[in-house]
């Protein structure tokens, strides 16, 4: 695991994140107890399409949410993402878990569409594949927030 729960909480708190808006998967989901035990507010949505407008409402209300979901949920929630980024023009930021990222010969097509989908939505993204790349999360968050634009960290799973 690239980040454990305590490390992710530390990262989020260091960035001033107030709320985690998520649909967990088997990797991201391991952080749940750390979030619950922290000062971060964990908001559990039922479907990824809720996550983007919920984050938009939090931003509008002056909060700093971080969206977390698996790549498949990212695919499914595209129209909600489009509306928030390109109509509302809000700088939402997300960690997207790339399902089967390290299984290059696998039978799961989800891996193949991660980068094309991020590029299709013209999102500023970076990829974290190893523990040595952890610092990219805060760097990319600060970069995107400073520029006032949406961003994604694609986390290899």
């Amino acid at each position: 695991m690239i980040f454990n729960g305590e490390q992710m909480v530390t990262e989020c708190q260091g960035l001033g994140i107030t709320h985690i808006v998520w649909v967990p998967d088997s990797v991201i989901g391991k952080w749940e107890q750390s979030f619950v035990a922290s000062s971060l507010h964990l908001l559990r949505v039922c479907r990824e399409g809720e996550a983007w407008p919920l984050a938009a409402g939090l931003i509008t209300g002056g909060q700093r949410p971080l969206v977390m979901m698996q790549s498949t949920g990212f695919f499914e929630s595209g129209d909600a993402l489009r509306n928030v980024v390109y109509d509302l023009k809000l700088p939402v930021f997300a960690i997207v878990g790339a399902r089967n990222w390290f299984q290059q010969q696998g039978l799961d097509s989800a891996r193949d569409f991660c980068l094309p989908m991020l590029q299709a939505w013209d999102l500023d993204y970076c990829i974290i594949e190893t523990e040595s790349e952890r610092s990219l999360l805060s760097q990319h968050y600060v970069h995107c927030q400073s520029a006032g634009k949406a961003g994604v960290v694609l986390l290899g799973e």
Binding site: H19, H41, L43, V45, E50, A51, W52, P53, L54, A55, A56, G57, L58, I59, T60, G61, Q63, P65
Partner: peptide, 8 residues
């Protein structure tokens, strides 16, 4: 969801 975010 948008309204929920503002409400919270």
């Amino acid at each position: 969801p948008f309204g929920l975010g503002i409400a919270l």
